[in-house]
Design a protein around this nucleic acid. Structure first.
Lengths: 199, 199, 199, 199
DNA sequence: CATGAATGAGTTTTCATTCAT
DNA sequence: CATGAATGAAAACTCATTCAT
């Protein structure tokens, strides 16, 4: 049975299938045939919607960015905004592992030529910028420890998300994911904040 | 011109070339032809030294493990041992980026069948275990903040190394690598330790 | 120039080409490239129609079986049925040498793993069974020499077909094929039957 | 441990190994590596004793011929000589299946260029000639049925040996090999001889 | 004589991509 | 739009053969 859909719809389906395939099976399986199978069409048909494989990779990047930025706008004082951001990212690990791991994956980076690493780096830098701005504002408002090194803290915060992702991937979480998400944030907060907020 | 070397030497060369290729160009370029070119032999020759590509991947994993475990034995009190470990890993990012990034890469994981993810996870778990044991001992000796969540801290420490690695990869380090290494450790230490040691 | 045909057609063409190639040039030439050339397509295209070379070998076996079993249904008294069978096989040597010789060839046997010898043996055993049942029935009806050893006779009859085939292959037939077919059958019949039927 | 032997010895060993390999595994395994392994030397070493694979094939043919002609000289009246020949060949099936099957195999034929088929045919024709001369002499001496067609009988006799060989290969012998050898000869003799000799 | 490394020319197979239907 | 057949280029391996040691 041949189901006909608009190119727009198909492009979305194909990009999503590609994300799934890369996330679950690795770049090695990022092939037209595999993706087409996932979508439920024939491999040749892929190229009715995308010029070539490169264009699919770009679409995947776009989906990734879209997905990361569809996060809610975090509000409140800088530390609360940071909390929102971190908890959101930690939770994403559990609910959409594929997309999250793509962000810290080197798979995508290499799927395009020179552009790949740059685009993925840019995506990650958005996260860093957000964290840095929260921390700066918090520091100005006296919410952070006095001696805190902002740049070191940026590494700590971004790293915690990655650390959590890999721990989850490796099955190295020693408590249920939801609990670990809260504990990681609490550990992070007490590492950064001036005085311990009672939980 | 035929250069002759022992199989032992060639195996090492080939594994190293594979690491280099994967690190620099991604799994997509992890091909017999590419590796052979790097080594300076013909692609068919690869298979006089390795049964198949799978065996090369295993050799790469071995080299990785070897390289991670050739680290100096850290001594002193638990926090000092942790410092040794973390600074060593952070420094490795700068001096042998390829190998380090392989550890947090999903490239290798997928190059073998089911064994891959398990072996790479095992490798990463070794680091986690070391960190956890240092933290536990430090906690017993009263070296850590009283309310510190050990498991959360394990994620923080492992994450910091990853965060540093990706920051370096993305060119997002805001100071020279050597300086950033020290700053990251100091941030980490003050996040964990009971009283601030004067720098 | 791309000629397009249905997979069904192509599978048949490829199997036939394989039979021809094996028959004429031996297993050594049973290569995708050689077969593809015979069919008039590129070698890679073969694998759009067959999963791998093994599957082609199986198709050849199927064609062989089909060809042997498309023989007319032999009727009449047991000796007449046997005559029909033997003359049909002897004649096939002349008109489709390739297929016939494949049956007594060890080429195919080895092209598959363990299955090959078994399948080819099974094919040959069908012939033996038919011959045996004709002889048994003929013996019951008193059409054969009294002292005839049925099992010995089965070997004699099957052997005669092979002997004829190899004689033809070696150019060792001392008379035209058609004549030799009749002479061989007559010799065989007088070796088995009770009283000589006048020629 | 490298054992050193004279080229003469090695050539013989290699030819024998080649016969064994072809007989047991088919032409597909007729490779320098496989043969060398059988002999217990390294593959490159083969070419210290043979110029190339072609030369090995020729050596195999020589061994084959040698083996067939090392049969005892058969004496007595023509039918007795024929009996000696047939029983000898039937028995060889059991004791040296490899060599025998090579004779009715098309493997060797194709291993050489045009020469192969001719040489193997010549080998088989020697057998036919011997049978034919026995039958002619027997006919002259009145030992055969009066109406026997000599050329048909040649096919019958050669065929019986092949039929026996393939039956043995297919596991289609319905009695122990030794017994079947005698029964086949007896069937053959009563098919040819004028009056039944008492067994 | 024997080895072990290297090679070049294949062979099977995969895959992105094209195109007639 | 979708399919199914075809392709060319490349990848993984194989193998006869060469040659320094």
């Amino acid at each position: 049975m041949r189901t006909r859909k608009s190119t727009q719809e198909r492009r979305r389906e194909i990009a999503d299938a590609a994300i799934k395939v890369i996330g679950e099976c690795g770049l090695r399986e990022f092939t037209a045939a595999h993706i087409a199978q996932e979508v439920g069409i024939k491999d040749g048909t892929i190229f009715r919607h995308f010029k070539d494989m490169n264009e699919i990779t770009l679409a995947v990047l776009d989906r990734l960015q879209e997905s990361l930025e569809s996060a809610p706008q975090f509000t409140g004082d800088p530390l609360e905004r940071l909390e929102g951001f971190v908890l959101n990212r930690l939770h994403s690990v559990t609910v959409q592992r594929g997309i999250q791991s793509l962000l810290f994956s080197d798979q995508l980076s290499h799927a395009l030529g020179a552009e790949g690493p740059r685009r993925v780096a840019a995506l990650r830098n958005r996260g860093r910028s957000f964290i840095r701005s929260c921390l700066r504002e918090a520091a100005e408002k006296g919410l952070l420890r006095e001696d805190l090194d902002i740049e070191g803290a940026v590494v700590l915060v971004t790293g915690t998300v990655m650390g959590f992702l890999f721990a989850a991937t490796d099955g190295a979480l020693t408590a249920p994911a939801g609990e670990m998400e809260r504990r990681c944030w609490r550990t992070l907060r007490s590492a950064l904040a001036r005085k311990q907020v009672l939980p």
